[in-house]
Computed example of a mutant assay.
Amino acid sequence: MSTTTTGSTIDLSRPAIPFAREVRVELRKMFDTRGGLWLFIITGGLLLLAMALTLLVLALNDDVTITASGFAQIMTIPLSILLPVFAILTVSSEWSQRTHLTTFTLQPNRGRVIGAKFAAVTLLALGTLVLAAVFGALGNVLYGLLTDHDVVWNLTGKELLWTVVLQLAFFWMAFAFASLLLNTPAAVASFYVVALILPVVAYPILMALFGWARDLLPWLDFNYAATPLIAGEDVMGEPVDVGALEYLRFAFTFCLWVVLPGVLGFLRIQRTEVK
């Protein structure tokens, strides 16, 4: 008696997953949880609250005025405080909840997964900036209606460009920290210490007391490095002749807090065992 064995074949002709679909999946995953959805809702509420409080102060104090540039600066504050958490969670939550087992099974190419997450974070940052711009423009119009002051649309292209650059830098910094640490509490704490607590609490005191701090700190903080590029003066209000040094400072801070941890985080994700 003879036995005939029929071999089976594996169809390898299935097309690869489109990168745009991976980006859409990563965007949807940001809002699939109640935590992510409520974080976005709270941020929108803070934008409305910031606009309302600003208008209230202006209505009660006739001597205080504001322009479109001022509204733009106020509207970016809630974005800088809360929304970078999205950039952290999109990476770190995969490892803390072990969903990376599924993610890297469906897409074994980890570089594409990281790229899709990075693109999703960038799109979220740009989208929220558009939302903040809408609220800022609305606030400026209401300011003209509620007060006797003229509406001033003085937001220059240079200010707008640097506002976008700084917001993207903070989002990318949060993403880089999450990639490097792969732990949500550690990434959130590290980001807020470097991006918020030190620049607001510690750095101003050091700059007021020590001359060396005025030279050193612009090499360590985005906002301190970018202020001369935006306003033509340093954080102490002293005029600055913007040159190659000022651009070098910003590039150095960007490499220090975005490029370096981002590259190390990319290498860590590529080599870390999925278990």
Rank of each mutant, 00 (worst) to 15 (best):
D11L: 13
L12N: 14
L12G: 15
L12I: 11
S13V: 11
S13E: 12
R14Y: 05
R14S: 13
R14V: 14
P15Y: 13
P15L: 01
A16E: 14
I17Y: 10
I17N: 08
I17C: 00
P18S: 03
A20E: 13
V23Y: 04
V23C: 04
V23T: 08
V23I: 15
V25L: 13
V25C: 02
E26W: 02
E26G: 06
L27E: 07
L27Y: 05
R28Y: 06
R28K: 15
K29D: 08
M30Y: 08
M30H: 07
M30S: 07
M30R: 12
F31P: 05
F31G: 04
F31R: 12
F31K: 08
T33H: 03
G35K: 10
G36F: 01
L37V: 03
L37Q: 09
F40V: 14
I41F: 11
I42N: 05
I42W: 02
I42G: 03
I42Q: 06
T43P: 13
G44L: 15
G44I: 10
G44Q: 12
G44S: 03
L46M: 15
L46S: 02
A50P: 00
A50F: 15
A50Q: 14
L53W: 02
L53I: 11
L55C: 04
L55T: 00
L56T: 05
L56Y: 00
L58H: 01
L58T: 01
L58M: 12
A59C: 01
A59G: 02
L60I: 02
D63R: 07
V64I: 08
V64N: 06
T65S: 07
T65C: 00
I66M: 05
I66V: 12
I66G: 03
A68T: 09
A68K: 11
A68I: 04
A68F: 05
G70N: 15
G70D: 15
F71K: 07
A72E: 11
A72Q: 15
Q73H: 04
I74Y: 02
I74F: 08
I74T: 15
I74R: 10
I74S: 11
I74Q: 12
T76S: 05
T76K: 14
T76Q: 13
I77S: 08
I77P: 04
L83I: 13
V85Y: 03
I88L: 05
I88C: 05
L89P: 05
T90Q: 13
T90A: 04
V91W: 10
S92A: 15
S92F: 03
S92Q: 08
S93H: 11
E94A: 08
S96R: 14
T99A: 06
T99D: 09
T99S: 13
T99V: 10
H100E: 10
H100G: 07
T102V: 11
Q107S: 10
N109A: 04
R110H: 08
R110V: 02
G111W: 07
G111V: 09
G111H: 11
G111M: 11
G115W: 04
G115K: 09
K117R: 15
K117Y: 07
K117F: 06
F118K: 09
A119G: 03
A119T: 08
A120M: 01
A120Q: 12
A120S: 07
V121K: 01
V121A: 14
T122M: 11
L124E: 06
L126N: 02
L126S: 09
G127D: 00
G127W: 00
G127S: 03
L129Q: 12
L129M: 10
L129S: 10
V130N: 00
V130Q: 01
V130P: 03
V130K: 04
L131G: 08
A132Y: 12
A133E: 09
A133G: 06
